[in-house]
Design a protein around this nucleic acid. Structure first.
Lengths: 139, 139
DNA sequence: GCTATCACTTGCATATTGCAAGTGACTCGA
DNA sequence: TCGAGTCACTTGCAATATGCAAGTGATAGC
């Protein structure tokens, strides 16, 4: 695989792209971070329509890289709960900046105005709250 | 193509990923933003080793989406200069956050310490300077 | 002209995705 | 306890994208 792990002193952007540089991974993280989704069935129902095998592969890869963890759902034994780890939650600033970029440069992309205002005025607090909210969803 | 333009009110993250959600696009933008590269031959020489057809395709796509522009090099007529547009330069915060994330969570990724210190202390200024520096490279 | 450089394009093998249809473990109500 | 349903996947296969090597056409300098 091109640019996979191995060498040291590697470009941080290249490294990051080896983990989430594809069409779907950040959407999975978005579902976990902003939409309170934590089950496979919830993520597969997202409007973008990720294929089931691709979702399974991405969850596996994210777990392997330590961005998410798998747990049995205490309320329903047959369900599996996916959670963002601290490493995964630390992507919040990246996602926030992506949202800001799309919203600023492409009409037709819909981010809540309150979110954008908050991002402009006190980004740090917004990020802290986003992470706190995502942690709450952890069951 | 899955999730390509069309509908309105679309998720900003999905929209962004339709533009740069792949293994190579952000590396091209990195070369233009941080490394002062503006020629095809410079980008193809980057250590990650993008394939020539893929680079050509990405440059075409980025131009179509308005993130970069093409110009004849005034100093050397046979060369073409690629520049980030304002929309492309506006991705600076995204790239900076990606660098911070990789550096914080994966030893072995090498970002200059001065850069990271700057990013932590006054991010806004760092971003302004990054953009200013990238504009300077415009010939 | 002749050769070199530059920005691509082309052809083809391989890898990744998308789609539809399973599969096995578990749960719930009768 | 039995059958039906749900859930988290897996499998097979066609379509698409990528990687690699080689080629092409337009300058540029000699």
């Amino acid at each position: 695989m091109a640019g996979e792990d191995g060498e040291v002193g590697r470009c941080p952007i290249d490294h990051a792209l080896a983990i989430f540089g594809d069409r779907w991974t950040l959407l999975v993280i978005r579902d976990l971070m902003f939409r309170g989704k934590c089950h496979y069935s919830e993520m597969i129902a997202s409007p973008e329509g990720i294929a089931s095998n691709v979702l399974a592969a991405r969850l596996k890869k994210l777990e392997a890289h330590g961005l998410i963890s798998r747990h049995a759902d205490p309320e329903n034994r047959k369900q599996i709960v996916y959670r963002l780890t601290d490493k995964g939650l630390a992507l919040a600033p990246v996602l926030v900046e992506i949202v800001r970029w799309s919203s600023a440069h492409d009409p037709g992309t819909a981010a809540p105005k309150a979110f954008l205002r908050r991002a402009a005025r006190d980004r740090e607090a917004l990020i802290r709250e986003t992470i706190a909210a995502a942690k709450k969803t952890r069951r």
